[in-house]
């Protein structure tokens, strides 16, 4: 049985513009967000520890044809990639993506674990993996902060919540969403980079994958309101600066108990 790890190729936030009320990705570099790279590393470590193959899975548009992106993922511990390319999936919302992923993994088959990241770098819904599990009817859990091995058909894991750590036994097959700090993403080695180009990439037939299950309708996009700040500089010795700060606090009525 293989392990699948899902990741998203998306435009880098720093290159995004809003023009004419729409999101403009023309100048954006497309890459896989850090949290997804962390998920791939966590999955790769578990695959290595349990002697399983790791298959990288992604659904999206024609950007997935990029050879550098493919080799990048293949140099991080994936034995192969399975991709669905359909431009209808570009800027898909979480439900639409989950529906497409569910069809894709069903076609890939032969897995007993699907690993997803905490959230994508662009939309960060933290929900796609959860929806995927539900659509597949599989046990699904989020907040996984440690993957401690597979015993028989049970995954040993830990989950991080507000109130502490839960030690879990998850029956396989299952879907787990890992946290962004479960581990650090790896620095791919030269050997792995050179071998990446020889690993298989399978393009699943997009015609067999539903790509229209939108779960939300976008009404508007805009830039957040920006507040013009005064940017007044305080300078001098630390003592002089401390005096200036206290004077300002008093003037603005910000000292505890008022003036």
């Amino acid at each position: 049985m293989d392990i699948l790890v899902c990741f998203k190729l998306s435009p880098d936030s720093k290159d995004i513009l809003v023009s004419n009320g729409a999101i403009n990705t023309d100048r954006a570099e497309w890459n896989v967000g850090e949290y997804d790279l962390v998920a791939v590393e966590a999955a790769a470590q578990l695959a290595a520890a349990t002697g399983r193959k790791l298959i990288g899975v992604s659904v999206g548009g024609s950007q997935l044809a990029n050879t550098r992106f493919r080799k990048n993922m293949l140099s991080r511990g994936c034995d192969s990639l399975s991709l669905v390319m359909n431009d209808a999936l570009v800027q898909a919302d979480t439900h639409k993506t989950a529906v497409a992923l569910a069809a894709a993994v069903t076609e890939i088959g032969n897995y007993d674990l699907i690993v997803c990241g905490e959230g994508s770098q662009d939309l960060y819904f933290r929900q796609t993996g959860i929806q995927l599990g539900e659509l597949l009817g599989l046990p699904v859990i989020n907040g996984i902060s440690a993957l401690n091995g597979i015993e028989g058909s049970v995954l040993l894991a830990e989950r991080s919540t507000d109130s502490g750590i839960e030690v879990l036994e998850i029956p396989l097959p299952a879907v787990v969403c890992v946290t962004s700090d479960i581990c650090q993403s790896r620095i791919p080695k030269m050997k792995d980079i050179l071998q990446a180009g020889r690993k298989p990439v399978k393009e699943l037939d997009a015609a067999g994958i539903p790509c229209d299950a939108t779960g939300s309708e976008i009404i508007k996009v805009a830039l957040p309101k920006s507040v013009q700040r005064k940017a007044v500089n305080f300078s001098g010795t630390p003592e002089e600066i401390a005096d200036q700060i206290v004077a300002m606090l008093a003037k603005e009525g910000l000292m505890p108990g008022g003036m």
Partner: peptide
């Protein structure tokens, strides 16, 4: 917005065929 709320709301959204807005 607790982890459990994200989990349950996400599963519910899948059942309802929608995306939950986080």
């Amino acid at each position: 917005t607790s982890p459990d709320c994200r989990l349950v709301s996400g599963r519910l959204a899948a059942k309802l065929g929608i995306s939950a807005i986080p």
